[in-house]
């Protein structure tokens, strides 16, 4: 390319070799900022490698079985991550199911319906949800959410006609459960999903809206037929970004999920997630092997969130390009 060919010589042009003083400052500055920029990929690689190294003893012993074995017995030195993977997926997916309708409702409300005087305060409140530290959610969950679940919500769900007798809502209602984790996660990922959705909805060109309105569509028909389809891949990207957050969310989940390595069909049963097993056991891990198994959980979590985030970025990026 002519352009790159023309820019390359600029670096070695007389710029660097003046008789009246070499401008080494520019070269130093360039190298320093480049080093800062390179530090990002370097750190990412370093993190992945170090965690794989730490996880290696467990991964090499259990191999693929680490993902499928459902026995996590510290005393016996048996480590299978299946219960954690199950708990992570169930709590996150359930959280998304709970959060998405509300998040989209807020996003559509804010971008399409809200009167200007209400838009700012509601947006601010929703953003505030994202600012609350995870541990504060956990604290609130322990002392407010769990009692409500135990005394009201769980008995109610269990008393439902058909669903109540399904395995989904069976077993004793202690409070600490997959359900509790999913609810707190839903509250926590809601602002992320709604923020991304709002952005992509606002990016829908006016011409799309006006075209629908000009055809005689009502506001709702315009949103359903013109706005949402246009922004669809971005909204899905936002939901997947929320999934990434939910998968890796640690503290609130650790405080509410019950921390027991079992696979149970009941949402009332306690569970474990990849993040919460690390938070709960890592500092007290007694054997090298236990540590390595926890590291391996971290490696699985890292891999999954990497994939999920890449997918989300790709989807969100598509709206920007598709909208041109």
């Amino acid at each position: 390319m002519t352009e790159s060919a023309a820019t390359v010589p600029a670096a070695s042009s007389p710029d660097d070799a003046g008789i009246e003083g070499r401008s080494t400052g520019d070269r130093v500055y360039r190298v320093l900022t480049l080093a800062c920029a390179i530090s990002i990929p370097a750190l990412l690689g370093f993190i992945a490698i170090e965690i794989l190294i730490g996880a290696w003893p467990a991964l090499s012993k259990f191999g693929f079985g680490f993902l499928t074995n459902s026995t996590w017995d510290v005393g016996a030195g048996q480590f299978g991550a299946a219960p954690m993977i199950y708990g992570t997926i169930v709590s996150s997916v359930l959280a998304l199911l709970l959060a998405t309708p509300f998040a989209l409702g807020v996003a559509i409300f804010l971008s399409e319906f809200a009167p200007p005087w209400l838009r700012q305060p509601v947006a601010f409140l929703v953003d505030l949800l994202a600012a609350i530290p995870s541990v504060v959610y956990g604290l609130w969950g322990i002392f407010v959410l769990l009692p409500i679940l135990r005394d009201t919500v769980m008995p109610f769900l269990a008393s439902l006609p058909v669903l109540g007798s399904s395995p989904l809502f069976s077993g004793p209602a202690y409070g600490n459960s997959l359900l509790a984790a999913a609810i707190i996660l839903a509250i926590m990922v809601l602002p992320y999903i709604s923020a991304v959705s709002r952005e992509v909805l606002m990016a829908v060109p006016r011409s799309q809206r006006e075209a629908a309105l000009a055809l005689g569509a009502t506001r709702w028909e315009m949103i359903r037929d013109a706005v949402v389809p246009y922004a669809r891949s971005g909204i899905i990207g936002g939901i997947i970004l929320g999934l990434g957050r939910a998968l890796g969310e640690t503290m609130a989940v650790t405080m509410l999920i019950g921390n027991r390595a079992e696979v149970s069909a009941s949402l009332f049963a306690p569970g474990y997630t990849l993040a919460s097993v690390i938070a709960n056991e890592f500092a007290e891990a007694s054997t090298e092997f236990h540590t390595a198994a926890l590291m391996a959980c971290g490696a699985v979590l890292l891999g999954v969130t990497l994939l999920v985030n890449m997918l989300a970025r790709w989807l969100v990026g598509r709206v920007g390009r598709g909208g041109a």
């Binding site: 990412l44 730490g54 969130t305």
Partner: peptide
């Protein structure tokens, strides 16, 4: 990659710092 780093779970950052 900066976006990806931003999306890493904080607990992963914790075990990384522990390991190193």
């Amino acid at each position: 990659l900066s976006d990806i780093l931003n999306g890493l779970p904080s607990i992963v950052m914790g075990i990384f710092a522990w390991q190193v």
